[in-house]
């Protein structure tokens, strides 16, 4: 049990990083990485929602969809759960932890359309993880996202002042620098445990 948890965590954070090797969550990754502070806030919000969504969707999938033979509704059910969850978390934080709420600001509603969240839930089902494994995969996947977005934001703060061709302005130079960070992350694939 413990070894499988360690394997899942290492895999989700470093080896199969959600952004740099699975391309899940690229839109907020590129959109919210202007500054290290905002990147950190976005990353934290994603860790939170991914962990919670993994746990709740596992329960719904196991006890409602599978029990009633409605697996074909998975996509529809999961996206609705995530949307409702994000809304609920937003209301809860606003009421009880206003400081965190104002720190996360506009990033919370954006998480609904973050494909890393729906992705992790679908991957949990695909990999047939049990409850604990799903929860660990959700949280560590979020931590992998946090690590990637914070690292990339600090790269990007420097790229802003670099001298590059004018036509690379905006997303193009971001993608090229993201490619180089992805190249660095490829080094972790050496850590993969041979099956």
């Amino acid at each position: 049990m413990l070894s499988s948890i360690i394997e899942i965590s290492l895999g989700a954070i470093l080896i199969n990083n959600f952004i740099f090797s699975q391309f899940l969550g690229c839109c907020p990754f590129l959109g919210c990485s202007n500054k290290v502070d905002t990147a950190f806030g976005m990353g934290l919000a994603v860790v939170f929602v991914m962990g919670l969504a993994s746990a709740i969707c596992w329960v719904i999938n196991e006890y409602i969809l599978v029990a009633l033979g409605l697996e074909f509704l998975q996509t529809l059910a999961f996206i609705l759960v995530i949307a409702a969850l994000v809304q609920f978390v937003e209301m809860f934080l606003k009421k009880s932890v206003p400081s965190l709420y104002s720190a996360l600001g506009i990033y919370l509603p954006l998480i609904t359309t973050n494909c890393a969240v729906l992705g992790v839930v679908l991957l949990n089902v695909q990999n047939k993880y049990n409850f604990i494994e799903s929860l660990v995969y959700g949280i560590t996947g979020g931590i992998g996202f946090l690590l990637a977005i914070v690292l990339f934001a600090s790269v990007r703060e420097r790229v802003e002042f670099a001298d590059y061709p004018e036509c690379f302005h905006g997303f193009a130079i971001c993608l090229v620098s993201a490619a180089l960070v992805a190249l660095a992350f490829m080094g972790f694939s050496g850590m993969a445990i041979p099956v």
Binding site: S21, F168, A172, C174, L175, V176, A179, M186
Partner: peptide, 12 residues
């Protein structure tokens, strides 16, 4: 993955 980021960046 490196190629995905790079190709799209250059294309844009």
């Amino acid at each position: 993955p490196f190629g995905g980021f790079l190709t799209l960046g250059v294309l844009i």
